[in-house]
Simulated scan of single mutants.
Amino acid sequence: MTSHVDARPVTIITGGGRGIGAAIAERLAAEGHDLVLTYRERRDDAERVADGCRAAGARVEVLPLDQADLDACAELVPEAVRRFGRVTGLVNNAGITGRIGPFLDGSIEEAELVLRINVLAPMALCRSAIAHMSTERGGAGGSIVNVSSGAATHGAPDTYIPYAASKAALNTMTLGLGKEFARSGVRVNTVSPGTTRTEIHAAAGRPNAPDERAGGIPMGRPGEPPEIAGAVAYLLSDDASYVTATDIRISGGK
């Protein structure tokens, strides 16, 4: 007999301790998910988010993950399965932009790190998740949501071209995985936020970037993390049962 707890979806959210990841965690906890949240350095932030999700009735595990370590990425899904018995969802949210500025002012070493964290880490995580979820391998199916960016389609000149390139690669990976594993019970989609009010801009050296860009957004303002979380929750839900290899752009019309 399946218990109520065993029937709850179990979703991994990378970078779940702040910004868009935290908003996704809070939304999914309210919708009945149990969660695995990862963080790189700021454990206290992740634990605060976890406490709020637990108050909403979710079981939550908080795990460290440096996405530059691809071996550690490959072990995250198996570790989540050890703790919860299964994984039904993966949200590849964690990422970095690199420094904001002209292309020639950046270094190839920084670009390499951006690609490693934003492309190769999600690839390693997707491999593990699909191997666990695939009905052709004895799994029960599942859903993966990759958090991309509107920058993937406009290139981000004078801003962060390596970041835009990494997100374009993520979109292409999503398209391929969504099609290859559609008959294996695994749906793979992206959400592509436009400029959103998070700390990622401060980490790149431009804390006021969201407000600076507001004039170029048809809605006249940056997005807020909960506005991204709603689309992620939809893609993980049964309402999206016929949606795969699809990108949802959330950019205020830009």
Rank of each mutant, 00 (worst) to 15 (best):
G21R: 00
L70C: 07
V5C: 05
D66I: 08
A7W: 00
S148K: 01
V145S: 11
T198G: 03
F181Y: 09
A58P: 04
V91F: 06
P78H: 11
A7H: 03
V49G: 01
R187G: 12
A80P: 08
M173S: 00
T159A: 12
M173H: 10
A214L: 15
V147A: 03
E47Y: 00
P225R: 03
T244P: 03
L236A: 07
E26G: 09
I96P: 07
Y160D: 14
N92R: 01
G52K: 10
V49R: 02
A204H: 00
R42K: 03
A233L: 01
T159D: 08
A22M: 02
T11D: 00
H4T: 15
A240E: 05
F103E: 08
L170G: 00
T172D: 06
G95P: 02
T153E: 08
G223E: 12
L65Y: 03
A231L: 14
G253L: 12
N171F: 13
R183C: 12
L235N: 06
D45K: 00
V114D: 02
R54I: 02
E41I: 10
V119E: 08
R183N: 15
T38E: 00
L35D: 00
V5Q: 09
R221A: 06
L175H: 12
A182I: 08
V5D: 07
H4K: 06
V77M: 14
L70W: 01
E224T: 04
D105L: 09
E180K: 08
R27M: 06
A204E: 05
R137S: 12
E61H: 14
P102E: 13
A214K: 14
A29W: 04
F84R: 05
A129G: 06
L177M: 04
E180Q: 08
A74D: 10
I108Y: 12
E112I: 10
S192P: 09
P210C: 03
A23V: 13
M219I: 15
L76F: 01
T244Y: 02
A22E: 04
L90R: 00
I250C: 11
T196R: 10
D239L: 10
I248V: 13
A229Y: 10
E75A: 15
R213P: 11
T14N: 09
A124L: 09
T2N: 09
A94S: 01
D34K: 05
P225C: 03
G223M: 11
I161Y: 08
G141P: 07
P218T: 11
G85A: 02
I200L: 00
A209W: 05
T153F: 06
G17L: 00
D239A: 13
V87R: 07
S237T: 00
V36Y: 11
G85F: 07
H33M: 07
F181S: 07
I228A: 15
L35T: 07
V77F: 15
S192G: 09
G52I: 12
G176M: 09
F181P: 03
V191P: 13
P78S: 13
A202E: 08
R54N: 01
R59C: 07
D44S: 07
M133D: 13
G52E: 09
M173D: 02
S237A: 06
D44Q: 10
S184M: 08
S134L: 07
R206H: 03
